[in-house]
């Protein structure tokens, strides 16, 4: 296969990875019925903290842990505001995202554009030798391998384990979860925190690997919102979420490739805007009745599969409060 194509695919997987990790984290949270809207600010702040901690300690591992701690704490603020203080989760998360983004730029102002530790790619032995698949998926950084584990792990957890049933029930119908002996608000705290820690991990993946270093304005600004949209695009299902992240990153890389091709003259600004426009159109499509109309045109055997794959029902209790009687 074409060397150039493999390099491009490899770069798509690498670029998509922080999005994958962040949107899997948000899926964990939203599956428990909590909306953590602080994603964008959380990623930026944890990227900064991760970079600075790695720089100060000289150890990237410390950086990763610090970033996860920041992401987890930010999410717990949303949980505290939404569950304990009974405030609107969307409002708390939104304010928090603005605060965190600005705080990151303020606290990180002395660390911009300086070299620091990085986590380099570590090809996985044996599997990297598989033709095509090896070079694309297994000559990557540890973050990418973690993302694979997260995607399959979350799928297994949600759909194949007993605690996964409780996890989903808390997000779907907390009154039922309560009746079955599940401690609804405790679980919501836990999953919000875990999801937030993964968002922090995504921040570290940016500042220690994909977009190594720290700069102002932050190079990953806006990606948190994309991750939120990818969760919706992915229908809260890990496999579709990862597909959405790869699709989005693919469009971005494609834009870069076209930009470098001399014969094609498409304005840079337009190319950069394409993924966002595509995201809006996709979200409109999956959340409107258009899909259903489209499905009816398809041949009958394809209908059920298409409908299941494209269905996008959010967890029924998403964003709501639960108070046991």
């Amino acid at each position: 296969m074409n060397e150039e194509l493999i390099r491009t695919l490899n770069s798509i997987v690498a670029n998509a990875t922080p999005l994958v990790i962040a949107s899997i984290g948000e899926t964990v949270t939203e599956r428990a019925g909590v909306v953590n809207l602080s994603l964008d600010g959380s990623i930026i702040l944890s990227a900064m903290v991760g970079f600075v901690a790695a720089l100060a300690s000289g150890s990237p591992v410390v950086g990763v842990l610090a970033a996860m701690l920041v992401g987890g704490l930010m999410a717990l603020i949303v949980a505290f505001g939404g569950i304990t203080l009974r405030q609107d989760q969307v409002a708390v998360g939104f304010v928090l995202t603005l605060l965190a983004a600005n705080l990151a730029q303020f606290l990180g102002q002395n660390y911009t554009r300086i070299p620091g530790p990085q986590i380099l790619n570590t090809p996985l032995p044996v599997v990297e030798q598989i033709p095509v698949i090896g070079p694309v998926f297994f000559r990557q950084s540890i973050f990418v391998y973690i993302s694979y584990v997260l995607v399959f792990g979350l799928w297994y957890w949600l759909f194949r384990t007993r605690p996964g049933l409780a996890h989903r029930a808390v997000g779907e119908r907390p009154a039922t979860a309560f009746a079955r002996g599940t401690r609804v608000n405790v679980l919501r705290y836990v999953y919000t925190g875990v999801g937030g820690a993964l968002v922090g991990l995504a921040g570290a993946a940016y500042s220690l690997n994909v977009k190594a270093g720290w700069s102002t304005p932050p190079s990953m600004a806006g990606d948190g919102w994309i991750a939120l949209a990818i969760v919706i695009f992915g229908g809260w299902h890990p496999f579709r979420v990862v597909l959405g992240a790869y699709l989005f990153a693919g469009l971005r890389v494609l834009a870069n490739v076209i930009q470098r091709t001399p014969d094609v003259s498409i304005p840079v600004v337009l190319l950069n805007g394409v993924p966002w426009a595509l995201m809006i159109i996709t979200l409109l499509l999956v959340s409107s009745g258009a899909i259903e109309r489209l499905v009816r045109v398809l041949p009958r055997p394809a209908q059920k599969w298409t409908r299941n794959f494209l269905r996008s029902d959010p967890p029924a209790a998403l964003g709501t409060r639960f108070e046991p009687e």
Binding site: R160, R162, L165, R173, A179
Partner: peptide
């Protein structure tokens, strides 16, 4: 009935009953 609309019959039946990690 207090069940979860997004679950299958079997998942609803299992949810809440004692048991280990596996379904």
């Amino acid at each position: 009935p207090l069940d979860v609309a997004a679950f299958t019959v079997l998942e609803n039946f299992i949810y809440g009953q004692a048991g280990g990690l596996a379904l």
